[in-house]
Design a protein around this nucleic acid. Structure first.
Lengths: 217, 217
DNA sequence: GGTGATAAGATGGTATACCATAATACCGAA
DNA sequence: TTCGGTATTATGGTATACCATCTTATCACC
C-alpha cells in the first residue's frame, strides 16, 4: 500500500468521523505534519478527494471540506433510492443459497453492532450488508457510485445511525430486507429497502435542518 | 483557470477522443512534455482522473487508460437508465414554458448536429440536451453522476453516436423525449428515454463486442 | 548456443526547496 | 478613526534529488 493510499484513507476517515468540520479549510502544510507525509502526497490526495466530492476547492483559497445542505443530501438519498431498489430487486432474483448465507452473516454482524451501540461498528456493518446486496446483484459499478455518494453524506449517515440505534426500528427494517431476499421476493425486497431508506432520509433531514438552524443562531 | 484544469481537460479530451487507447500506459515524464507542465501537475491530474474512473493505476506499473469491457459498460447503461428515466419523468412534471423553450433550443442544436454529421458537435449537443433535462428536473447531483459515468464510456458513446447519425432514428427518438416533456407527460417521457437508451446500449454492445473480437485476432 | 546472473535504464514514489501571486491581517500615519 | 502600505500566509506552480522496483539487455558461464 502506497503512502498516498494511507493518507487518503486517513483523510477520508477524518472527514467522515467529523474530525474536520464541513467548511473547514484544509491547509496543505499543516496536513503534511498531521499525516506525516510530504506535500506531493497531500496535494495528490486532495485532488482525489476533490474528484470524489468530499472536498471543494475555492479558487485562490484552497481546499475545504465540502459543505452539505439538505438540497444535495436529498438528491443523494433519491439516487440511492433508485440504485438500491434496483440492487435489492436483482439481488432477490438472483440470490442462491451461498449468497443468502453470506448476507445472513452480514445481518448477524449488523445485529451485533446494533446491540453494541457503537456507531462505528454500526457504520461498518451497514456498509457490509449493502455491499453484499450489490455484490449478489452483480452491480459493482452501482455500488461504487453509492459508496461515493455516501462519502458525501457520511457525517449525516453517522448521525442518523447514531439516533436510529436507540429506536431499534432500524434493525427490524433491515431484517425485512433480508427476509425478502431470503425468500427470493423481489417486490418485497424493493419495498423493504425503500421503506428503510425513506426513514433514514427523514431522520437525516430532521437532524440536518436542526443542526443548520442551530448554527445560524 | 489553473494549469491543472487545463491539463485535466486536455487529458480527458485526449482519452475521450481516443487519442490514448484503452489500456495505454500513461508515462509521466512524456506526458509532462506533451502537456508542457511539470510532473507535479501531471501526477495530480492523473489522481483526479483515477478518481473519475478514466484512469487505472497498476501497482508498480503506473497509470493506464481504464479498460472498458461490456460487463461494466452494461452496468453503466443500466444506471443511466434509472437516473435518466427519473430525470425525464420529473422534468416532464416540472417543465414550465421557459424550460421548454430552453429544451427546444437544445433540440434544435441537436438537429443541426445530426444533419451536419460532425460526431463532435453531436456529442456536445447531446450532452447539452441531457443537461437541460437534469437541470429542469433539479437533479444536479444525478447529472454529476451521469456525467462521470459517461466519461468512462465516452469512447463508446462517440462510436455509438457516429453510427447512429447514419440511421437518423436516433434523432426521432430524442424528439419523442422532447415532445413528451413539452406536453408534460411523465409516463411518455420515461418511456421515450428508456427506448432511446436501450437502443444506444444495443448499438454500443454490438460495436464493443465487434471491436473486442477483432482485437483478439 | 542456451541459461542464468548482473548491470543499466526506465518508471513510480517521495521529499524538499524555490518562486510568484493572491488574500489577509496588521500596523502606523494622516 | 480611517486609510494605505507592508508583512504574513497559503496557494499554484516548478524543478530536482533521491530511492525502490521493474524491465531489459548484456554477458559470462555451462
Amino acid at each position: 500500500m502506497t503512502l498516498r493510499d494511507m493518507a487518503l484513507e486517513k483523510m477520508r476517515a477524518a472527514i467522515i468521523a467529523g474530525h474536520f468540520q464541513s467548511g473547514d479549510r484544509l491547509v496543505e502544510r499543516p496536513l503534511c505534519d498531521q499525516l506525516g507525509v510530504s506535500r506531493s502526497v497531500v496535494r495528490e490526495t486532495i485532488r482525489y478527494l476533490e474528484a470524489e466530492g468530499l472536498v471543494e476547492i475555492l479558487p485562490n483559497k484552497g481546499p475545504i471540506v465540502a459543505k452539505l445542505d439538505w438540497e444535495n443530501a436529498q438528491q443523494i438519498y433519491e439516487i440511492r433510492m433508485l440504485l438500491e431498489t434496483s440492487a435489492a430487486q436483482k439481488c432477490a432474483e438472483l440470490a442462491k443459497d451461498g449468497d443468502k448465507k453470506k448476507l445472513g452473516k452480514a445481518l448477524a454482524q449488523l445485529k451485533l453492532a446494533y446491540s453494541s451501540g457503537e456507531t462505528n461498528d454500526l457504520f461498518e456493518a451497514t456498509t457490509l450488508f449493502y455491499q453484499c446486496i450489490f455484490d449478489i446483484s452483480g452491480q459493482n459499478v452501482a455500488w461504487e457510485v453509492v459508496q461515493r455518494l455516501n462519502g458525501r453524506i457520511s457525517r449525516l449517515r453517522a448521525m442518523t445511525l447514531g439516533t436510529r440505534d436507540r429506536h431499534d426500528a432500524g434493525y427490524k427494517r433491515i431484517e425485512k430486507i433480508y427476509s425478502a431476499i431470503e425468500t427470493n421476493d423481489p417486490q418485497a425486497a424493493a419495498a423493504a429497502i425503500q421503506l428503510h431508506l425513506t426513514e433514514a432520509a427523514n431522520i437525516a433531514k430532521t437532524l440536518l435542518t436542526a443542526e443548520l438552524s442551530k448554527s445560524e443562531k
